[in-house]
Design a protein around this nucleic acid. Structure first.
Length: 489
RNA sequence: CGGGGUGUAGCGUAGUCUGGUUAUCGCGCCUGCUUUGGGAGCAGGAGGUCGUCAGUUCGAAUCUGGCCACCCCGACCA
């Protein structure tokens, strides 16, 4: 074994780091807090992008691109927004370097009149621009998305989960009415939930954030929350109803049908490369990655087993029929006939990389007319007649997708607890982690106290949450519904 | 940003306490032959500013100080 992964039972953080690095998804870079996304990791991200982009287009959105740099004065216009992001902004102050006796230095003569902020998010530059795009109700709704990188100067970083620079998409929409904007925010939350559940096989809970967890500048923040295998919560996507806050700050008005001037209503929504972290931490095991077939860069790997060139030639013949059929079905495969690696090495390597299905074919198979089919999720294998194996594989890919989702739901169910006393609450979080469904009195004070004492935060108030009479687990005050508490990434 | 730890070949490491020939071993890499149904074997070979900068010393991977990076734990956050 040349690539040893720390077992997750021993050290979950280390297990995650080992997976990301050893499976070739990403690496630490020479730049503090920034990562290099390697080809295999980027291929998965590209799959995510392609699917999401299609979903955005299907819901009427267009892509555009706004500047990386935001003048400080723009940034300062929305008070809550500034408050939320000021502590983690990279700032550009000069535009030139020069040679000096000490080497290359910043040229103090090249100081910018106004500093530029490297975008931590683009609301301000976008709303400044929208002012010029919107005059009449006929210009609405304005439905724009951008794929971009953003920078948030984080103290402590983790590959994919929190890096100083990350890749994401940010949608920014403008609407004539409050209701339409709220509907947009909810619609995009549903798009995210569908993507994460159907394509990533990661179950999520849709909900809203409490005031303290809300996006800086939003009236309502919607989120989807997933549970990782260690029981911690991970926010997989957010969608914000921004009210008229940015319209006010940037004076974005439109003339309605009656000829009266009104402020527009706004939303923004985003998912990031953090989804890669969710993907890894939801399905993978101690042997390596486990990728859902829908996003796997390679869905099927074919490994030939042979002694002589003659045998390989026969195998090639069988395989080429197979791959023609895969081509026709749009199945992403790799035929690895590399002579320098033994079959055993390849088996281990593709397991590490999370390839959902492996086909092995050797002399014995040629004799019997079978092929060995192994599935990554259950680590089981069986011999299947070569005749019709294409169909078998196609079904298997679907089955794996479902099984991954089912297993993730089971994990979440087994680690979700309804509790009614604070003693129980603390016990669950200490001993088992997971989601805790508990009554909460709705105050920020209680939320803060619980966070201080248990490190658990309110992940969300689920949408369509069943209403029931109860008492706040902390204060004993009356409550009408349970909310989800958990430790979070 | 605070506390703790680590840094020696692409990767993992010995050596560091107690300074002293040519810096150890395994994996990987290159060449050749044999192999191939769960990380192959043998033989030969290449690869090092010992994180970095300065200091102490006749002599530094080893001692001292600064800096950098990464990991773990906390505070902050997607």
């Amino acid at each position: 074994m040349s690539k040893v992964i720390t077992p997750k039972e021993q050290d979950y953080s280390q297990w995650y780091n080992d997976l990301v690095i050893k499976a070739g998804l990403a690496d630490h870079s020479a730049v503090k807090g920034c990562m290099v996304i390697k080809p295999y990791g980027y291929a998965i991200w590209e799959r995510m992008q392609a699917v999401l982009d299609g979903m955005f287009k299907a819901t009427g959105h267009s892509n555009a691109y706004f500047p990386l740099f935001i003048p400080k004065s723009f940034f300062a216009k929305e008070a809550a927004h500034v408050e939320g992001f000021a502590k983690e902004c990279a700032v550009v102050t000069h535009y030139r370097l020069k040679n000096s006796p000490e080497g290359l230095v910043v040229d103090e003569d090249a100081k910018l009149d106004e500093e530029l902020i490297v975008r931590p998010t683009s609301e301000t530059i976008i709303w400044n621009t929208y002012k010029g795009w919107i005059q009449s109700y006929r210009d609405l709704p304005l439905l724009i998305n951008q794929w971009a990188n953003v920078v948030r100067w984080e103290m402590r970083t983790r590959l994919f989960l929190r890096t100083a620079e990350f890749l994401w998409q940010e949608g920014h929409t403008a609407h004539a009415t409050r209701q339409e904007a709220v509907e947009e925010a909810e619609k995009m939350l549903n798009v995210y939930a569908e993507f994460v559940e159907k394509w990533m096989s990661v179950p999520v809970i849709k909900g809203t954030k409490t005031a303290s967890e809300r996006f800086a500048g939003a009236l309502e923040t919607y989120c989807i929350e997933a549970m990782m295998q260690d029981g911690k919560a991970l926010q997989a996507g957010t969608s914000h109803f921004l009210g008229q806050n940015f319209a006010k700050a940037f004076d974005v008005k439109f003339l309605n049908k009656e000829g009266k001037s009104e402020l527009v209503w706004a939303t923004s929504w985003g998912v990031s490369t953090r989804l890669m972290g969710a993907l890894v931490m939801t399905h993978s095991d101690n042997e390596g990655l486990v990728l859902p077939p829908q996003l796997a860069p390679i869905q099927v790997v074919i490994v030939p087993i042979y002694r002589e060139a003659e045998q390989l030639a026969k195998i090639n013949e069988v395989v080429s029929k197979l791959t023609r059929s895969f081509d026709a079905d749009g199945i992403r495969y790799k035929y690895d006939s590399d002579d320098n690696r033994s079959p055993g090495w390849k088996f281990a390597e593709y397991e590490l990389k999370g390839v959902p299905v492996r086909l092995a074919i050797g002399p014995k198979d040629l004799e019997k007319g079978t092929i060995e089919v192994s599935r990554r999720d259950t680590r089981t294998k069986e011999f299947v007649p070569i005749e019709g194996v294409e169909k078998y594989v196609k079904n298997l890919l679907g089955e794996i997708t479902e099984n991954l989702f089912k297993k993730a739901v089971e994990l979440r169910t087994n680690n979700s607890h309804k509790v009614d006393t604070y003693a129980e609450f603390k016990e669950v979080l200490e001993k088992q982690s997971g989601f805790v469904w508990a009554h909460w009195d709705g105050t920020a004070e209680t939320e803060e106290k619980i966070k201080e004492e248990t490190k658990a935060t309110i992940r969300c108030i689920p949408l369509n949450n069943p209403q029931e009479e109860g008492k706040c687990v902390y204060s004993g005050k009356p409550s009408k519904q349970r909310v989800i508490f958990a430790k979070a990434y």
